[in-house]
């Protein structure tokens, strides 16, 4: 079975974070999740880890990020823009695959998200267990079954 050891969930909505953790937990393939509530927090995490010479505290860096599209102040896509800028400027050595999450029914939003070079895919909220399993199959690391 393939697993994704460390996942960063970015969402301002606590209920959505809890739901996401529940879904990931039910697959038993995402052993560690940690939360950020705003884009600013995520940027702070990445730049601090990049500037510090100590190895970053577990579970950073994540192997996968789920980012909510709609957040107060910095939106999900603005956050991804910023992360890509940090990566391009070589301030951040590597970016994890990013999955955008949204409850929006607007198809243009999905189109904008998947068109972004740093976005792996777009998922409708709430995330489904089979979608989480598919992600683990695609990106996960094999561990002894």
């Amino acid at each position: 079975m393939k697993i994704i050891p460390s996942v960063l969930l970015v969402d301002d909505d606590v209920s959505d974070l809890v739901l996401c953790e529940l879904t990931l937990g039910r697959t038993k393939r995402f052993p560690r999740t940690f939360r950020a509530r705003t884009g600013e927090q995520v940027l702070a995490l990445f730049t601090r880890a990049a500037q510090s010479s100590d190895p970053p505290p577990e579970p950073f860096p994540p192997d996968l990020m789920f980012v909510d599209v709609h957040m107060p102040a910095m939106t999900g896509l603005e956050l991804v823009d910023e992360l890509l800028r940090l990566r391009t400027a070589a301030i951040v050595p590597v970016l994890p695959p990013i999955v955008m999450l949204s409850a929006s029914l607007d198809p243009r939003e999905e189109a904008r998200a998947v068109a972004h070079p740093a976005v792996l895919e777009y998922m409708a909220k709430p995330m489904r267990v089979d979608a989480a399993n598919r992600l683990a199959d695609r990106l996960g690391r094999e561990i002894g079954s």
């Binding site: 301002d12 705003t38 107060p72 102040a73």
Partner: peptide
């Protein structure tokens, strides 16, 4: 506030802070 978001705050249901 950060003027990056100055336009957005006049849109309905746009917030700049956590609930």
């Amino acid at each position: 506030l950060d003027t990056r978001y100055a336009k957005r705050i006049f849109e309905p249901f746009q917030r700049l802070h956590l609930r």
